[in-house]
């Protein structure tokens, strides 16, 4: 089948496009990268589907962990990293505990997310957490209602964290800056606006 058909109507071209995989779609390094970052033996997967059967996200969406496992093994990097379902894993590790091949499919997903992030594919809420931690040390920072409640409990208004000791925040910022993650988060969040 032709990969491009040059139909006049772009809608029809899209509707009828060739959905076969070709050897050239595969990046054999993808599996190696996933295994290195995820520290798990993804290539041992024999596609039994215990993972998808254990997955709380599967019954309410098109997310299929088994599919991502197959894409890892086949090197279908583009397919895997651009699929929005990649971000529907709650990382509950049920698939990992039940995998008969002793693979950690959850960590395959984590590795793929890391690789997607390298291509600037990261949902906003993940980046916003980074921005919050950079600013205050906390992903969920204190607020006035909570400060008042803390004082009523006999606790100090600020917990014994970076909130009470902001002098620790520059160290945290240095770590995040080492990986240039704050700049990246700012850039991608601004792009989305």
């Amino acid at each position: 089948m032709a990969r491009s058909k040059n139909y006049q109507d772009p809608k029809l071209e899209e509707k009828l496009k060739d959905r076969k995989y070709y050897a050239t779609d595969s990046n054999p390094d993808f599996l190696k990268e996933v295994e290195k970052i995820g520290q798990t033996i993804a290539h041992m997967c024999y596609q039994c589907g215990t993972c998808t059967g254990s997955c709380p996200s599967a019954p309410r969406s098109s997310y299929r962990i088994r599919l991502f496992m197959r894409k890892a093994v086949l090197g279908l990097e583009e397919e895997a990293l651009t699929d929005p379902d990649l971000w529907l894993c709650t990382t509950c590790y049920s698939c990992t505990d039940r995998c008969p091949r002793d693979i950690a499919p959850t960590d395959v997903i984590m590795a793929m997310r890391n690789l997607a992030a390298k291509r600037d594919i990261v949902p906003r809420n993940f980046l916003q957490t980074v921005q919050l931690i950079y600013k205050s040390g906390h992903g969920v920072p204190n607020n006035d209602v909570n400060r008042a409640a803390r004082v009523k409990l006999g606790l100090e208004a600020e917990p014994e964290t970076t909130h009470k000791y902001p002098e620790y925040i520059p160290g945290i910022q240095k770590i995040i800056d080492h990986y240039e993650l704050k700049a990246k988060a700012d850039r991608l969040v601004a792009q989305g606006e």
Partner: peptide, 11 residues
């Protein structure tokens, strides 16, 4: 830091 949010971006 939050394992889901932070770990997903860069372990």
């Amino acid at each position: 830091p939050a394992p889901g949010a932070f770990g997903s971006i860069d372990l």
